[in-house]
Design a protein around this nucleic acid. Structure first.
Lengths: 104, 104
DNA sequence: ACCTCATATCAAAAATATTTGATATATGAT
DNA sequence: ATCATATATCAAATATTTTTGATATGAGGT
């Protein structure tokens, strides 16, 4: 019950930070290696790694290792889930708890 | 250019915090007075006010004053915008910048 | 005008998130 | 095995967010 909100918040954290929005925009044009992202962002290597971890943990981004390189791309599945969830969270609910709704 | 990410982040901040997700869930069953929300949440009055401001500023929630009370509800328009934006942010882009995409 | 109640704002404290630089790990090349 | 490179992790510094309690604002009632 309590963990539900934590999990949901984790998903949307991907979109709450300017750097991460910028990273996502770069990824919209296709899979990118960390080194390419690093070139285009005003971020140090460890900073990029920090943000990529948050993005991957949110499910919005997938990573794939290829030799020394890690490639990142937007996850279709994760994104679709986030969109569906956002829709759900903002859509009127059936009245489940008689005590808390239809009150006024 | 820079402010774009700030504005987008502001919208999704509504969904990045457990307390706010809980508030949104309460609002899914219909418009609620601040005083009703206060009863159902583990939050002080000023804390609720703080979160409601963030929710209203994000466009996800609308407020309406009626006498001494303020009523809050989920904004259909704001929510639809957020969903559309989230979809856009996670959808492959047309190739706009020849230098940054189709590279590898 | 004064009082009461609902909400907002402020400022300080506490908690979290982000940045930064140093170090660790892991892969491929020599 | 050693070296060079790419990325991850750690710890400290910094910045931002959230919580809390006190006070301000604003509406309605007396």
């Amino acid at each position: 019950m309590d963990t539900k909100y934590k999990e949901q918040a984790k998903i949307f954290k991907a979109f709450c930070d300017e750097k991460r929005l910028q990273i996502l925009e770069l990824l919209r044009s296709g899979e990118k290696c960390a080194c390419v992202l690093l070139e285009q962002l005003d971020l140090g290597q460890s900073g990029l790694s920090y943000h990529m971890k948050i993005l991957v943990d949110s499910g919005i981004v997938e990573s794939r290792q290829e030799g020394k390189w890690v490639h990142y791309k937007i996850s279709e599945k994760g994104s679709a889930y986030a969109v569906a969830l956002l829709k759900e969270l903002t859509t009127p609910n059936a009245c489940l708890d008689a005590n808390t709704c239809c009150k006024q």
